[in-house]
Amino acid sequence: MRSISPPLGIEAWRRGAGVLASAGQALRLGALSALAGWPVLIGRAIFYLVALAVLSALWSKVAGERLPGTLARALPAGGLALYVGASEWIMLSIPSIHLRLEDDIRSGALETHLLRPKLYLLLRIAEAVGDMLVRMGTLALAALALLLLSGRGAPAAGLAFLALSGVLGGAVGVLLYAIVGLAGFWIRRTLPAFLLLQKLMFLLGGLFAPVSLYPSAFRRIAEASPFAAQLYWPSDQLIAPSAAMLAQTLALQAGWIAVLALIVAAIWRAGVARLLKQGI
């Protein structure tokens, strides 16, 4: 069966194609799983709309008052409702991959997956991305419905740029959550680490307000963090679409995805080595 080995190039190509096909299938599975749980999708959409209602009420009030000597002058003309709609759209779409990883590690199900010839971690991340895409689709529909109902407009270019950079931003978030989940190899409860990470995402990613409104020291830290690539830069495209900024954003996101992927791979290798020695 495997007695004749084909030339190296073809073998590598075939292997790569196999990995890609598996990842694609895993992505499809993640999407199907998300669709199967449609009551949860609807619940999330409702939460999204309610949160948007409250936050846009806040920002409308602030923008409407235009108090002198405050940052109100720095607010975009239409207020921040669009921005918050975008940032919450990304944030709420990121699936809880950390729970999945923690569960697999703790329950021992990881061993079953290690017995397969394809990298478990890659497949899990692909699944999470599939899940994320379905969530993003659902929430986008909800947001568009809200836009139509409220009669508020949104720049078409902004929507397109947001769609593109938002998906990459979500991918950054997935990798960050994955790091927390993989900590399950060493610590029993990842929840505190997760909560901390999530709050950093809210704060440094500019979930409730663009990072550009922060005091300068804070802003610099936030802009340098992966969280800005996850939430702020994509969301900013909706209120101030610019092809140049989009290119920069995409490059930054690609850079962070590469860095985080390396970190995730390193943690995974260390974790699996530990598993092989100690069996968890």
Binding site: R14, G18, A21, S22, G24, Q25, A26, L29, L32, S33, A36, R116, P117, K118, L123
Partner: peptide, 15 residues
């Protein structure tokens, strides 16, 4: 998901 979907993924995993 139905078992059929899991099998489809396994087909890819094992090439």
């Amino acid at each position: 998901l139905p078992a059929r979907d899991s099998f489809a993924l396994l087909r890819r995993i094992y090439d």
